[in-house]
Design a protein around this nucleic acid. Structure first.
Lengths: 196, 196
DNA sequence: ATAAAACATGAATACTGATTCATATTTCAA
DNA sequence: TTGAAATATGAATCAGTATTCATGTTTTAT
Protein backbone atom coordinates (compact mmCIF):
# COMPACT_ATOMS: atom_id res chain seq x y z
CA UNK A 1 0.00 0.00 0.00
CA UNK A 2 2.80 2.44 0.88
CA UNK A 3 5.35 3.48 -1.68
CA UNK A 4 8.37 1.21 -1.83
CA UNK A 5 11.75 2.51 -0.63
CA UNK A 6 13.52 4.78 -3.05
CA UNK A 7 15.90 3.01 -5.44
CA UNK A 8 19.56 2.83 -4.37
CA UNK A 9 21.21 2.74 -7.75
CA UNK A 10 21.23 5.02 -10.76
CA UNK A 11 19.62 2.31 -12.85
CA UNK A 12 16.91 1.93 -10.25
CA UNK A 13 16.12 5.62 -10.25
CA UNK A 14 15.89 5.63 -14.02
CA UNK A 15 13.62 2.61 -14.19
CA UNK A 16 11.34 4.07 -11.59
CA UNK A 17 11.08 7.27 -13.54
CA UNK A 18 10.41 5.38 -16.78
CA UNK A 19 7.59 3.53 -15.15
CA UNK A 20 6.17 6.68 -13.61
CA UNK A 21 6.11 8.41 -17.00
CA UNK A 22 4.58 5.37 -18.65
CA UNK A 23 1.91 5.32 -15.98
CA UNK A 24 1.19 8.98 -16.61
CA UNK A 25 0.78 8.32 -20.32
CA UNK A 26 -1.33 5.17 -20.00
CA UNK A 27 -3.56 6.19 -17.10
CA UNK A 28 -3.81 9.71 -18.45
CA UNK A 29 -5.14 8.59 -21.81
CA UNK A 30 -7.03 5.39 -21.05
CA UNK A 31 -8.10 6.10 -17.50
CA UNK A 32 -7.31 4.25 -14.31
CA UNK A 33 -9.19 1.01 -14.81
CA UNK A 34 -8.60 0.66 -18.53
CA UNK A 35 -4.86 1.08 -18.16
CA UNK A 36 -3.35 -2.23 -17.04
CA UNK A 37 -0.03 -2.76 -15.33
CA UNK A 38 0.94 -4.72 -18.43
CA UNK A 39 0.19 -1.65 -20.57
CA UNK A 40 2.32 0.47 -18.31
CA UNK A 41 5.33 -1.83 -18.23
CA UNK A 42 5.09 -2.49 -21.97
CA UNK A 43 5.16 1.25 -22.58
CA UNK A 44 8.06 1.59 -20.15
CA UNK A 45 9.90 -1.28 -21.90
CA UNK A 46 10.35 -3.31 -18.74
CA UNK A 47 9.03 -6.59 -17.49
CA UNK A 48 5.70 -6.80 -15.73
CA UNK A 49 7.17 -7.68 -12.38
CA UNK A 50 9.51 -4.70 -12.41
CA UNK A 51 6.56 -2.50 -11.68
CA UNK A 52 6.24 -4.00 -8.21
CA UNK A 53 9.86 -3.29 -7.35
CA UNK A 54 9.05 0.40 -7.38
CA UNK A 55 5.37 0.63 -6.60
CA UNK A 56 3.28 -1.52 -4.36
CA UNK A 57 0.06 -1.25 -6.31
CA UNK A 58 -1.68 0.52 -9.15
CA UNK A 59 -3.25 2.90 -6.64
CA UNK A 60 0.24 3.64 -5.41
CA UNK A 61 1.59 5.01 -8.71
CA UNK A 62 -1.63 6.83 -9.17
CA UNK A 63 -1.28 8.57 -5.85
CA UNK A 64 2.28 9.51 -6.66
CA UNK A 65 1.17 11.07 -9.94
CA UNK A 66 -1.43 13.15 -8.14
CA UNK A 67 1.17 14.33 -5.64
CA UNK A 68 3.54 15.17 -8.45
CA UNK A 69 0.85 17.13 -10.23
CA UNK A 70 0.21 19.09 -7.05
CA UNK A 71 3.84 20.12 -6.76
CA UNK A 72 4.08 20.97 -10.44
CA UNK A 73 0.91 23.04 -10.45
CA UNK A 74 1.84 25.02 -7.39
CA UNK A 75 5.39 25.65 -8.56
CA UNK A 76 4.21 26.65 -11.99
CA UNK A 77 1.51 29.06 -10.82
CA UNK A 78 3.76 30.59 -8.17
CA UNK A 79 6.37 31.25 -10.82
CA UNK A 80 3.86 32.59 -13.36
CA UNK A 81 2.40 35.00 -10.84
CA UNK A 82 5.68 36.05 -9.29
CA UNK A 83 6.22 39.30 -11.07
CA UNK A 84 2.68 40.48 -11.56
CA UNK A 85 2.45 44.15 -10.49
CA UNK A 86 -0.69 43.56 -8.44
CA UNK A 87 -3.23 40.94 -7.46
CA UNK A 88 -5.58 41.54 -10.36
CA UNK A 89 -2.80 41.05 -12.87
CA UNK A 90 -1.73 38.01 -10.91
CA UNK A 91 -5.20 36.56 -11.48
CA UNK A 92 -4.89 37.01 -15.19
CA UNK A 93 -1.39 35.58 -15.30
CA UNK A 94 -2.33 32.64 -13.10
CA UNK A 95 -5.31 31.68 -15.20
CA UNK A 96 -3.34 31.91 -18.40
CA UNK A 97 -0.48 29.85 -16.99
CA UNK A 98 -2.88 27.22 -15.75
CA UNK A 99 -4.51 26.84 -19.15
CA UNK A 100 -1.11 26.55 -20.79
CA UNK A 101 -0.16 23.90 -18.28
CA UNK A 102 -3.27 21.89 -19.05
CA UNK A 103 -2.37 22.07 -22.74
CA UNK A 104 1.12 20.80 -22.01
CA UNK A 105 0.25 18.01 -19.59
CA UNK A 106 -3.31 16.94 -20.39
CA UNK A 107 -2.65 13.49 -18.94
CA UNK A 108 -1.64 14.78 -15.55
CA UNK A 109 -4.66 17.03 -15.53
CA UNK A 110 -6.98 14.17 -16.27
CA UNK A 111 -5.34 12.10 -13.57
CA UNK A 112 -6.01 14.75 -10.94
CA UNK A 113 -9.64 14.85 -11.89
CA UNK A 114 -9.97 11.09 -11.85
CA UNK A 115 -8.37 11.04 -8.41
CA UNK A 116 -11.76 12.04 -7.08
CA UNK A 117 -12.92 8.52 -7.84
CA UNK A 118 -9.73 6.59 -7.11
CA UNK A 119 -8.13 8.32 -4.16
CA UNK A 120 -10.38 10.95 -2.63
CA UNK A 121 -7.85 11.90 -0.01
CA UNK A 122 -5.21 12.74 -2.61
CA UNK A 123 -7.81 14.65 -4.59
CA UNK A 124 -8.98 16.69 -1.63
CA UNK A 125 -5.42 17.35 -0.55
CA UNK A 126 -4.56 18.65 -4.00
CA UNK A 127 -7.33 21.21 -4.08
CA UNK A 128 -7.38 22.05 -0.42
CA UNK A 129 -3.67 22.76 -0.35
CA UNK A 130 -4.00 24.95 -3.38
CA UNK A 131 -7.07 26.72 -2.04
CA UNK A 132 -5.41 27.54 1.27
CA UNK A 133 -2.47 29.26 -0.37
CA UNK A 134 -4.77 30.96 -2.84
CA UNK A 135 -7.07 32.31 -0.15
CA UNK A 136 -4.10 33.59 1.82
CA UNK A 137 -2.93 35.56 -1.22
CA UNK A 138 -6.39 37.00 -1.67
CA UNK A 139 -6.55 38.06 1.97
CA UNK A 140 -3.23 39.83 1.75
CA UNK A 141 -4.28 41.62 -1.40
CA UNK A 142 -7.56 42.64 0.21
CA UNK A 143 -5.68 44.02 3.21
CA UNK A 144 -3.49 45.99 0.84
CA UNK A 145 -6.59 47.49 -0.73
CA UNK A 146 -6.05 45.72 -4.03
CA UNK A 147 -9.35 43.86 -3.85
CA UNK A 148 -12.88 44.64 -2.85
CA UNK A 149 -13.58 43.02 0.54
CA UNK A 150 -15.12 39.55 0.42
CA UNK A 151 -14.78 35.97 1.65
CA UNK A 152 -11.35 34.91 0.43
CA UNK A 153 -12.01 31.21 0.79
CA UNK A 154 -15.21 31.20 -1.23
CA UNK A 155 -13.50 33.34 -3.83
CA UNK A 156 -10.54 31.00 -4.03
CA UNK A 157 -12.77 27.99 -4.70
CA UNK A 158 -14.89 29.88 -7.18
CA UNK A 159 -11.80 31.01 -9.06
CA UNK A 160 -10.38 27.51 -9.11
CA UNK A 161 -13.71 26.32 -10.46
CA UNK A 162 -13.49 28.78 -13.31
CA UNK A 163 -9.98 27.66 -14.18
CA UNK A 164 -10.83 23.95 -14.02
CA UNK A 165 -13.86 24.24 -16.20
CA UNK A 166 -12.37 26.55 -18.78
CA UNK A 167 -9.38 24.23 -18.98
CA UNK A 168 -11.59 21.29 -19.68
CA UNK A 169 -13.81 23.05 -22.19
CA UNK A 170 -11.33 25.19 -24.09
CA UNK A 171 -8.13 23.25 -23.77
CA UNK A 172 -8.94 19.56 -23.48
CA UNK A 173 -12.01 19.53 -25.69
CA UNK A 174 -11.15 22.16 -28.19
CA UNK A 175 -7.81 22.20 -29.96
CA UNK A 176 -8.56 25.39 -31.82
CA UNK A 177 -9.85 27.66 -29.07
CA UNK A 178 -8.32 31.09 -28.74
CA UNK A 179 -6.88 30.83 -25.26
CA UNK A 180 -5.97 34.50 -24.98
CA UNK A 181 -9.52 35.47 -25.79
CA UNK A 182 -10.87 33.06 -23.18
CA UNK A 183 -8.46 34.38 -20.58
CA UNK A 184 -9.37 37.98 -21.34
CA UNK A 185 -13.08 37.38 -21.15
CA UNK A 186 -12.83 35.39 -17.94
CA UNK A 187 -10.49 37.92 -16.43
CA UNK A 188 -12.80 40.77 -17.27
CA UNK A 189 -15.63 38.97 -15.53
CA UNK A 190 -13.48 38.18 -12.51
CA UNK A 191 -12.34 41.77 -12.23
CA UNK A 192 -15.55 43.68 -12.85
CA UNK A 193 -18.34 41.15 -12.74
CA UNK A 194 -21.20 40.94 -15.20
CA UNK A 195 -23.41 43.73 -13.90
CA UNK A 196 -23.77 46.63 -16.34
CA UNK B 1 -25.03 -1.70 -25.89
CA UNK B 2 -28.31 0.05 -26.67
CA UNK B 3 -31.03 0.36 -24.07
CA UNK B 4 -33.49 -2.53 -24.07
CA UNK B 5 -37.08 -1.94 -25.22
CA UNK B 6 -39.29 -0.28 -22.66
CA UNK B 7 -41.22 -2.74 -20.44
CA UNK B 8 -44.71 -3.67 -21.58
CA UNK B 9 -46.29 -4.40 -18.25
CA UNK B 10 -46.83 -2.44 -15.06
CA UNK B 11 -44.65 -4.86 -13.17
CA UNK B 12 -41.92 -4.42 -15.73
CA UNK B 13 -41.98 -0.66 -15.43
CA UNK B 14 -41.76 -0.89 -11.66
CA UNK B 15 -38.87 -3.33 -11.69
CA UNK B 16 -36.99 -1.18 -14.15
CA UNK B 17 -37.44 1.83 -11.94
CA UNK B 18 -36.37 -0.12 -8.85
CA UNK B 19 -33.19 -1.17 -10.59
CA UNK B 20 -32.52 2.34 -11.84
CA UNK B 21 -32.84 3.77 -8.33
CA UNK B 22 -30.66 1.02 -6.90
CA UNK B 23 -28.06 1.78 -9.55
CA UNK B 24 -28.19 5.44 -8.62
CA UNK B 25 -27.61 4.59 -4.97
CA UNK B 26 -24.86 2.03 -5.51
CA UNK B 27 -22.93 3.74 -8.30
CA UNK B 28 -23.46 7.11 -6.68
CA UNK B 29 -21.90 6.06 -3.40
CA UNK B 30 -19.35 3.42 -4.38
CA UNK B 31 -18.47 4.64 -7.84
CA UNK B 32 -18.85 2.92 -11.19
CA UNK B 33 -16.29 0.15 -10.89
CA UNK B 34 -16.77 -0.60 -7.22
CA UNK B 35 -20.52 -0.99 -7.63
CA UNK B 36 -21.24 -4.44 -9.00
CA UNK B 37 -24.36 -5.60 -10.81
CA UNK B 38 -24.85 -7.95 -7.88
CA UNK B 39 -24.81 -4.98 -5.49
CA UNK B 40 -27.36 -3.21 -7.61
CA UNK B 41 -29.78 -6.12 -7.90
CA UNK B 42 -29.37 -7.00 -4.23
CA UNK B 43 -30.29 -3.42 -3.33
CA UNK B 44 -33.20 -3.55 -5.76
CA UNK B 45 -34.32 -6.88 -4.27
CA UNK B 46 -34.33 -8.72 -7.57
CA UNK B 47 -32.31 -11.53 -9.07
CA UNK B 48 -29.03 -10.82 -10.78
CA UNK B 49 -30.29 -11.76 -14.22
CA UNK B 50 -33.23 -9.40 -13.98
CA UNK B 51 -30.86 -6.53 -14.52
CA UNK B 52 -30.21 -7.64 -18.09
CA UNK B 53 -33.90 -7.68 -18.93
CA UNK B 54 -33.97 -3.92 -18.60
CA UNK B 55 -30.44 -2.81 -19.32
CA UNK B 56 -27.93 -4.24 -21.71
CA UNK B 57 -24.85 -3.42 -19.67
CA UNK B 58 -23.54 -1.56 -16.68
CA UNK B 59 -22.56 1.31 -18.99
CA UNK B 60 -26.13 1.35 -20.20
CA UNK B 61 -27.73 2.11 -16.80
CA UNK B 62 -25.01 4.57 -16.17
CA UNK B 63 -25.74 6.46 -19.36
CA UNK B 64 -29.42 6.52 -18.50
CA UNK B 65 -28.67 8.01 -15.10
CA UNK B 66 -26.59 10.76 -16.70
CA UNK B 67 -29.41 11.54 -19.13
CA UNK B 68 -31.87 11.62 -16.28
CA UNK B 69 -29.66 13.97 -14.32
CA UNK B 70 -29.51 16.27 -17.33
CA UNK B 71 -33.27 16.50 -17.55
CA UNK B 72 -33.66 16.98 -13.82
CA UNK B 73 -31.02 19.68 -13.60
CA UNK B 74 -32.37 21.67 -16.50
CA UNK B 75 -35.96 21.42 -15.31
CA UNK B 76 -34.97 22.37 -11.80
CA UNK B 77 -32.88 25.40 -12.74
CA UNK B 78 -35.44 26.61 -15.28
CA UNK B 79 -38.09 26.49 -12.61
CA UNK B 80 -35.92 28.13 -9.95
CA UNK B 81 -35.03 30.98 -12.24
CA UNK B 82 -38.48 31.42 -13.73
CA UNK B 83 -39.68 34.34 -11.69
CA UNK B 84 -36.47 36.21 -11.08
CA UNK B 85 -37.05 39.91 -11.81
CA UNK B 86 -33.88 40.19 -13.89
CA UNK B 87 -30.83 38.25 -15.04
CA UNK B 88 -28.64 39.11 -12.10
CA UNK B 89 -31.24 37.84 -9.66
CA UNK B 90 -31.63 34.80 -11.89
CA UNK B 91 -27.93 34.09 -11.39
CA UNK B 92 -28.29 34.17 -7.67
CA UNK B 93 -31.40 32.02 -7.69
CA UNK B 94 -29.88 29.53 -10.14
CA UNK B 95 -26.74 29.06 -8.09
CA UNK B 96 -28.70 28.60 -4.90
CA UNK B 97 -31.05 26.10 -6.50
CA UNK B 98 -28.16 24.16 -7.94
CA UNK B 99 -26.45 23.84 -4.57
CA UNK B 100 -29.70 22.72 -2.99
CA UNK B 101 -30.08 20.14 -5.71
CA UNK B 102 -26.60 18.78 -5.07
CA UNK B 103 -27.49 18.46 -1.41
CA UNK B 104 -30.63 16.53 -2.26
CA UNK B 105 -29.19 14.21 -4.89
CA UNK B 106 -25.48 13.85 -4.16
CA UNK B 107 -25.40 10.47 -5.88
CA UNK B 108 -26.70 11.78 -9.16
CA UNK B 109 -24.24 14.63 -8.98
CA UNK B 110 -21.34 12.30 -8.46
CA UNK B 111 -22.51 10.16 -11.33
CA UNK B 112 -22.45 13.08 -13.74
CA UNK B 113 -18.91 13.89 -12.74
CA UNK B 114 -17.78 10.31 -13.08
CA UNK B 115 -19.34 10.19 -16.54
CA UNK B 116 -16.27 12.00 -17.73
CA UNK B 117 -14.38 8.75 -17.25
CA UNK B 118 -17.07 6.26 -18.17
CA UNK B 119 -19.04 7.82 -21.00
CA UNK B 120 -17.42 11.00 -22.27
CA UNK B 121 -20.12 11.60 -24.84
CA UNK B 122 -22.84 11.63 -22.22
CA UNK B 123 -20.73 13.89 -20.06
CA UNK B 124 -20.04 16.37 -22.83
CA UNK B 125 -23.67 16.33 -23.89
CA UNK B 126 -24.77 17.12 -20.35
CA UNK B 127 -22.61 20.21 -20.02
CA UNK B 128 -22.77 21.34 -23.61
CA UNK B 129 -26.54 21.24 -23.65
CA UNK B 130 -26.67 23.18 -20.45
CA UNK B 131 -24.06 25.68 -21.61
CA UNK B 132 -25.90 26.41 -24.86
CA UNK B 133 -29.11 27.31 -23.11
CA UNK B 134 -27.23 29.25 -20.48
CA UNK B 135 -25.28 31.29 -23.02
CA UNK B 136 -28.48 32.08 -24.91
CA UNK B 137 -30.00 33.47 -21.73
CA UNK B 138 -26.94 35.58 -21.11
CA UNK B 139 -27.04 36.95 -24.67
CA UNK B 140 -30.66 37.94 -24.32
CA UNK B 141 -29.99 39.66 -21.04
CA UNK B 142 -27.04 41.47 -22.51
CA UNK B 143 -29.18 42.66 -25.41
CA UNK B 144 -31.73 43.92 -22.90
CA UNK B 145 -28.99 45.89 -21.18
CA UNK B 146 -29.13 43.77 -18.04
CA UNK B 147 -25.51 42.70 -18.34
CA UNK B 148 -22.22 44.31 -19.24
CA UNK B 149 -21.23 43.17 -22.75
CA UNK B 150 -18.99 40.10 -22.90
CA UNK B 151 -18.56 36.66 -24.44
CA UNK B 152 -21.67 34.80 -23.35
CA UNK B 153 -20.23 31.37 -24.01
CA UNK B 154 -17.08 31.87 -21.96
CA UNK B 155 -19.20 33.38 -19.21
CA UNK B 156 -21.59 30.44 -19.23
CA UNK B 157 -18.75 27.93 -18.80
CA UNK B 158 -17.06 30.03 -16.15
CA UNK B 159 -20.31 30.31 -14.21
CA UNK B 160 -20.94 26.59 -14.48
CA UNK B 161 -17.42 26.05 -13.19
CA UNK B 162 -18.14 28.14 -10.14
CA UNK B 163 -21.32 26.22 -9.40
CA UNK B 164 -19.70 22.80 -9.86
CA UNK B 165 -16.78 23.56 -7.63
CA UNK B 166 -18.71 25.28 -4.87
CA UNK B 167 -21.14 22.35 -4.93
CA UNK B 168 -18.32 19.92 -4.41
CA UNK B 169 -16.52 21.91 -1.75
CA UNK B 170 -19.39 23.33 0.29
CA UNK B 171 -22.11 20.75 -0.22
CA UNK B 172 -20.51 17.36 -0.81
CA UNK B 173 -17.48 17.81 1.42
CA UNK B 174 -18.89 19.98 4.14
CA UNK B 175 -22.11 19.16 5.88
CA UNK B 176 -22.04 22.26 7.98
CA UNK B 177 -21.30 24.98 5.45
CA UNK B 178 -23.54 28.01 5.39
CA UNK B 179 -24.93 27.73 1.88
CA UNK B 180 -26.61 31.12 1.89
CA UNK B 181 -23.34 32.76 2.82
CA UNK B 182 -21.53 30.93 0.03
CA UNK B 183 -24.20 31.91 -2.47
CA UNK B 184 -24.06 35.55 -1.41
CA UNK B 185 -20.30 35.77 -1.61
CA UNK B 186 -20.15 34.04 -4.99
CA UNK B 187 -23.01 36.13 -6.29
CA UNK B 188 -21.35 39.34 -5.20
CA UNK B 189 -18.22 38.33 -7.06
CA UNK B 190 -20.18 37.36 -10.15
CA UNK B 191 -22.07 40.62 -10.15
CA UNK B 192 -19.34 43.12 -9.35
CA UNK B 193 -16.06 41.28 -9.65
CA UNK B 194 -13.21 41.46 -7.19
CA UNK B 195 -11.66 44.78 -8.23
CA UNK B 196 -11.89 47.49 -5.54
C1' DA C 1 38.16 -9.40 -7.81
C1' DT C 2 34.20 -10.89 -5.35
C1' DA C 3 30.29 -11.50 -2.52
C1' DA C 4 26.29 -9.18 -0.93
C1' DA C 5 22.68 -6.17 -2.20
C1' DA C 6 19.77 -4.37 -5.85
C1' DC C 7 17.37 -5.01 -9.56
C1' DA C 8 14.95 -7.65 -13.67
C1' DT C 9 12.11 -11.14 -15.59
C1' DG C 10 7.63 -13.24 -17.05
C1' DA C 11 5.10 -17.41 -16.21
C1' DA C 12 1.92 -18.88 -12.80
C1' DT C 13 -1.48 -17.73 -9.34
C1' DA C 14 -5.77 -16.00 -7.61
C1' DC C 15 -9.64 -13.57 -7.70
C1' DT C 16 -13.24 -10.64 -9.21
C1' DG C 17 -17.25 -9.69 -11.45
C1' DA C 18 -19.83 -8.91 -15.99
C1' DT C 19 -22.74 -11.40 -18.88
C1' DT C 20 -25.36 -15.58 -20.45
C1' DC C 21 -28.81 -19.06 -20.38
C1' DA C 22 -31.92 -22.83 -19.44
C1' DT C 23 -35.68 -23.04 -16.66
C1' DA C 24 -39.75 -21.22 -14.01
C1' DT C 25 -43.47 -17.93 -13.13
C1' DT C 26 -46.56 -14.07 -14.12
C1' DT C 27 -49.25 -11.07 -17.05
C1' DC C 28 -52.65 -9.96 -20.42
C1' DA C 29 -55.12 -9.83 -24.80
C1' DA C 30 -58.52 -12.40 -27.11
C1' DT D 1 -60.24 -19.21 -19.56
C1' DT D 2 -55.99 -19.83 -21.92
C1' DG D 3 -51.71 -19.74 -24.33
C1' DA D 4 -48.37 -16.59 -26.11
C1' DA D 5 -45.52 -12.92 -24.60
C1' DA D 6 -43.16 -10.85 -20.72
C1' DT D 7 -40.79 -11.21 -16.93
C1' DA D 8 -37.93 -13.56 -13.06
C1' DT D 9 -34.29 -16.47 -11.36
C1' DG D 10 -29.42 -17.58 -9.98
C1' DA D 11 -26.01 -20.97 -11.09
C1' DA D 12 -22.53 -21.43 -14.53
C1' DT D 13 -19.53 -19.38 -17.88
C1' DC D 14 -15.80 -16.64 -19.30
C1' DA D 15 -12.53 -13.17 -19.61
C1' DG D 16 -9.42 -10.01 -17.79
C1' DT D 17 -5.81 -8.53 -14.96
C1' DA D 18 -3.55 -7.35 -10.40
C1' DT D 19 -0.14 -9.41 -7.78
C1' DT D 20 3.38 -12.96 -6.45
C1' DC D 21 7.47 -15.55 -6.81
C1' DA D 22 11.33 -18.49 -8.07
C1' DT D 23 15.04 -17.75 -10.86
C1' DG D 24 18.55 -14.93 -13.21
C1' DT D 25 21.47 -10.63 -13.96
C1' DT D 26 23.70 -6.29 -12.73
C1' DT D 27 25.64 -3.03 -9.56
C1' DT D 28 28.28 -1.60 -5.67
C1' DA D 29 31.15 -1.63 -1.71
C1' DT D 30 35.30 -3.55 0.03
Amino acid sequence: MATNPYPRTRRGAERREQILRAAEAMIGTQGFSAASIADITRHAKTALGTFYIYFSSKEDVFRELVLEMGQLTRAMVTQAVADAPNRLEAERAGLKAFLRFVAERPSLYRIVEEARFIDVEAYKAYFTTFAKAYAAQLREAEAAGELRPGDAEVRAWALMGIAKTLGERYVLWDETADIDHVVNEAYSMIRDGIAP
